[in-house]
Amino acid sequence: MSARISRPMVGFLALLAIALILAVDLATSAPPDLFTAPPAFALGSGQAPGGAHCSGS
């Protein structure tokens, strides 16, 4: 099967999958608010990290 599907084609399909996830996300989630966006760097921001990580439950 894979002999007929080139690497570039699979790569483009992967990008398409990401684009679909982003489209679903943008259609169903609250859009990001640039006015409440965090500072560029967490270090030196004075803010507690608010992101989620795999090590959390």
Partner: peptide, 25 residues
């Protein structure tokens, strides 16, 4: 990654979140 995000490099949380988004949709 640590300095910008305030947390170390990770992979799995994001993938689980994508799955949750798709399931919710």
């Amino acid at each position: 990654n640590l300095v910008i995000a305030g947390q170390p490099w990770g992979i799995v949380y994001g993938l689980g979140l994508w799955g949750a988004k798709l399931a919710q949709a």
